[in-house]
C-alpha cells in the first residue's frame, strides 16, 4: 500500500488518474491539449511564431525550466513585432485552472467570456495542457448527450 502524502485534492490537482462515481466525467485536465507549443522567456517572438504556426496552433504557453507557466501568447500577442523577446510580448501571469475542474463549467465560462484558450496547471503552477474552447464545448456536449441517452430519455 502507498499513502500519497499530499492528499486527495493534490492528487486530483496534479491531474493524476482517479476512480469512483465521478471518474468517468471528463475534467479540464482530460480535455486539455498536452501537445500545445511552449517557449522560454528569452526567445525571439518571430522564431516562436514560426514554430507555433508550423505546428498548426495559434497559441503558445511560456514556461520556465520547471514547466511553471509564466505567460501566454494568444494570436493577438503572436502578431506583434517579431523582434521582441517573449518576455516583452507575452501576456504575463495568465489565469490558470486546475485539472479537476468540471468540463461543463469551464466550457460555459469560456463561451460566456468568449475566451479561446485557458492554461490548465497543477496547484504549483506546472503546465498540464491548454484547454481550447471548441474542445471544452465538444466534450461538454458529448457528456450531456451521453447522460441524457443513458437514462433512456426519462429526464
Amino acid at each position: 500500500m502507498y499513502d500519497y502524502e499530499d492528499g486527495k485534492l493534490d492528487w486530483l490537482a496534479a491531474g493524476l488518474p482517479s476512480e469512483g462515481t465521478n471518474a468517468e466525467r471528463p475534467r479540464a485536465g482530460d480535455v486539455a491539449r498536452k501537445d500545445v507549443p511552449t517557449c522560454r522567456l528569452d526567445e525571439r517572438l518571430g522564431d516562436v511564431r514560426d514554430r507555433v504556426r508550423e505546428a498548426g496552433w495559434d497559441a503558445c504557453v511560456v514556461l520556465n525550466e520547471e514547466r511553471v507557466v509564466f505567460g501566454l501568447l494568444r494570436s493577438k500577442e503572436l502578431e506583434t513585432d517579431p523582434d521582441r523577446r517573449i518576455e516583452e510580448a507575452m501576456r504575463p501571469g495568465p489565469s490558470t485552472f486546475r485539472p479537476f475542474v468540471s468540463i461543463e463549467e469551464m466550457a460555459a465560462f469560456m463561451i460566456e467570456h468568449d475566451l479561446d484558450s485557458s492554461p490548465i496547471t497543477t496547484s504549483d503552477g506546472r503546465l498540464v495542457g491548454l484547454l481550447r474552447r471548441q474542445d471544452a464545448a465538444k466534450a461538454a456536449l458529448e457528456l450531456h448527450e451521453r447522460e441524457h441517452h443513458s437514462d433512456g430519455g426519462k429526464a
Binding site: L9, F97, R98, S102, M106
Partner: peptide, 18 residues
C-alpha cells in the same frame, strides 16, 4: 467568486492535507 464557481479552492479537511 470564480474559485467558488469552479470549485478550485476546496478546503483541506485536515491541515496536513489528508
Amino acid at each position: 467568486c470564480l474559485a467558488e464557481a469552479l470549485r478550485q479552492a476546496m478546503a483541506h479537511p485536515h491541515q496536513h492535507g489528508g
